[in-house]
Simulated scan of single mutants.
Amino acid sequence: MSTPDPSEMSRRQQIAATYRMTKRTDPRIGVWLLGAFVLGAALGYGLFTVLPGSGTLSLIMSIVGALMLGLLFTVILFGRRAQKSAYDQMEGTTGAAARALSSLRKGWKTDQLIAFTKQQDMVHRVVGPPGIVLVGEGNPHRLKTLMASEERRHQRVVAEVPIHLVVVGDDEGQVPLRKLVKHVNKLGKSLKGAELTDVRGRLRAIDANRSNMPIPKGPVPTSMKGLRGQMRGR
């Protein structure tokens, strides 16, 4: 049976699917969430108890405050542990960087598999405020040649646009998968709206020559957009 598209699932179904996914690598997630709710509720109840007021109204406000803070703590913890679990499950799998990049917010455009080798080394491209970011995953030695070739190819079309090279991994000079999105977001702001549109238009000339390139065998990267929406409270 195929996995449902997160965009076609109800809010409740998305939460349930994320919980099941998280539980695979975090079996005590239920205990953690219960603990977060109890802690938040206790703090909320205590906070509203000391506020001016008395009688039934004060009790009702304290209970409401406990529920609100308890739910807030639970949602925050669930989002963080779900994100960690998602990265843990993606680590070491084909296309993991592409899946992580899909969680970038509006204003970024990600093109997966713009270059690759038979050994499934891959280069993905992200276009956004920092300019062009070429993200490689696979063997660093093979990626060095592959990414240098892509950098030259892009410079011929958008010579004035900054091009950043990022290799995903845990060795020195590389960016760990779980920090990839944060790293890309911190690369600066060199392009604005109209400039981004122009760059994306010129890059179509490069992409047009790739239309007949064979896609390498292996798992097709899936999206983190459903999880992203849940963590952002949508």
Results as ranks from 00 to 15, higher is better:
residue 102 S to T: 12
residue 121 D to G: 02
residue 161 V to R: 14
residue 159 A to D: 15
residue 149 S to T: 12
residue 130 P to I: 02
residue 171 D to S: 09
residue 146 L to W: 05
residue 116 F to V: 08
residue 132 I to Y: 07
residue 186 K to R: 15
residue 104 L to S: 10
residue 150 E to S: 08
residue 104 L to G: 09
residue 108 W to G: 00
residue 128 G to D: 03
residue 181 V to H: 05
residue 183 H to G: 12
residue 97 A to K: 13
residue 127 V to M: 08
residue 155 Q to G: 08
residue 152 R to A: 05
residue 124 H to D: 13
residue 122 M to I: 09
residue 193 G to A: 14
residue 115 A to D: 14
residue 121 D to L: 01
residue 148 A to F: 07
residue 118 K to V: 03
residue 146 L to S: 01
residue 177 L to N: 09
residue 123 V to D: 00
residue 185 N to Q: 09
residue 136 G to D: 03
residue 163 I to G: 08
residue 142 R to C: 01
residue 136 G to K: 00
residue 101 L to V: 13
residue 194 A to P: 11
residue 133 V to T: 13
residue 155 Q to D: 07
residue 174 Q to N: 06
residue 143 L to G: 01
residue 155 Q to R: 14
residue 128 G to E: 00
residue 164 H to W: 15
residue 180 L to P: 03
residue 158 V to F: 05
residue 103 S to F: 00
residue 130 P to E: 03
residue 141 H to W: 09
residue 157 V to M: 11
residue 98 A to W: 14
residue 143 L to D: 10
residue 166 V to N: 12
residue 137 E to H: 10
residue 149 S to R: 14
residue 132 I to E: 03
residue 104 L to Y: 02
residue 177 L to Y: 14
residue 99 R to G: 13
residue 94 T to H: 14
residue 182 K to V: 03
residue 98 A to H: 14
residue 138 G to S: 09
residue 163 I to A: 10
residue 156 R to T: 13
residue 174 Q to V: 02
residue 154 H to C: 12
residue 167 V to Q: 03
residue 168 V to T: 13
residue 126 V to T: 00
residue 190 S to N: 15
residue 194 A to D: 15
residue 140 P to L: 01
residue 126 V to E: 03
residue 109 K to I: 06
residue 180 L to V: 14
residue 105 R to N: 05
residue 189 K to S: 15
